[in-house]
Design a protein around this nucleic acid. Sequence first.
DNA 1: TTAACTTTGTGAAATTCTGCACGAAGCCCT
DNA 2: AGGGCTTCGTGCAGAATTTCACAAAGTTAA
Lengths: 228, 228
Amino acid sequence: MTQSQRRRIPDAAVARLPVYLQILNNLHATNVARFSSDELAALAGVNAAKVRKDLSYLGSYGTRGVGYVVTYLIHQIRRELGLLREWNVVVVGAGNLGCALAKFGGFAPRGFPVVGIVDNDPKKIGQSTGALKVSDVRNLQKLVRDLEVTIGAITTSTSAAQSAADALIEAGIASILNFAPIVLAIPSSVSVRNVDLGVELQILSYYEQMRIEQTDSKNQQKSNAVPV
Amino acid sequence: MTQSQRRRIPDAAVARLPVYLQILNNLHATNVARFSSDELAALAGVNAAKVRKDLSYLGSYGTRGVGYVVTYLIHQIRRELGLLREWNVVVVGAGNLGCALAKFGGFAPRGFPVVGIVDNDPKKIGQSTGALKVSDVRNLQKLVRDLEVTIGAITTSTSAAQSAADALIEAGIASILNFAPIVLAIPSSVSVRNVDLGVELQILSYYEQMRIEQTDSKNQQKSNAVPV
DNA sequence: TTAACTTTGTGAAATTCTGCACGAAGCCCT
DNA sequence: AGGGCTTCGTGCAGAATTTCACAAAGTTAA
């Protein structure tokens, strides 16, 4: 078995590659031809050794004493992330967010065209959102097959999210972007990324409170150094 | 120094607490009074020992042989995350997303009321979005002070995001929720959470491609077991 | 060509995170 | 009261991740 065991990139590194790619695209747009791990590290806000190790998972594409070529690295990251082709997206849930995603043209140019949107509400089915018409969720399987959809975005209400996920999986989808504030029950063969602003805000809240408590205790120390 | 070194919760655990809280709120809403680490683990899709360890950072609030009391644990998580008070949010950037956040009433009930929205475009300043009026970004500092804002959400264009961050930090904000696809340059004393759908899609793309390659190589093996 | 300098690629140490395994502690039933 | 059962809390080992540190490999200049 020569290479059935494909080069595995650690999860943590996979999550950083899109960030590097973003930065490299910016460098390219500003006519920067080469970069060093130090420079990329500064722009990405991480350690330089981490950058080098992350990039080394792609192969040895740097030149010692010189650095990396922007365009070449962009291509390598895109290849590794599977961005040399398009991945069609279907949106499940034609509410505010779902329609916004369908209308928003920002994903198609980045390789993720939204090719369909479905809902289970008869009042919404048939309505137009941008260039798309809302389909019946019962047509999901056919839609996924006909349009070669690989990614499903769940923008339903929380209560409908699990059945939306079930329908997507039933239709053969194995990559889900979930916007509902719920932990989906799914087989381990399916990938899920959760986007939950509530969670993000609560994490910020923790560290904010942390800072406040530390400031308070310092002030306390100043104004009242002697224990009561 | 008795406890100036506040009980530190590992970052990984902090990121899970909001998820547990969400689930416990659901349990509470369905009149479940108690839960075991096994049950919560199943609902959260994690290991039971991890749940127990995470909860143990809050203190010893379980009862052996019984489990945890839902309402009590909800309170403890909320306390630890700093959710016993409200954290006011200001939105920087009155575009589609910014206005949607300002109008969306879903954050106030969860403790994060959006109390202001600013922009630098004279055409947008003064317009109403929901209950709020768009202010001039130059009033940010005053707005932050007067309305006791602690969290800033950046919903500007990518090119304006860094100066938005600078303005927020200048105004005294130390917690930022960034929606622009860019790595902000900020001092280490400031917390940032990035919400970038492009990044999420690209991560999904990687694992999707991975699956496809594995399937392909299996098929290849079947149909062509002998190497050429 | 050689010496000085730069920057990659990567072992290895350090740190963080996860998961097992089990003692401790409480409940229930007889 | 005591035995059996359940479930927490946590020490510890292993996995994953991050960081250090330096040899290797290239450039530049004299």
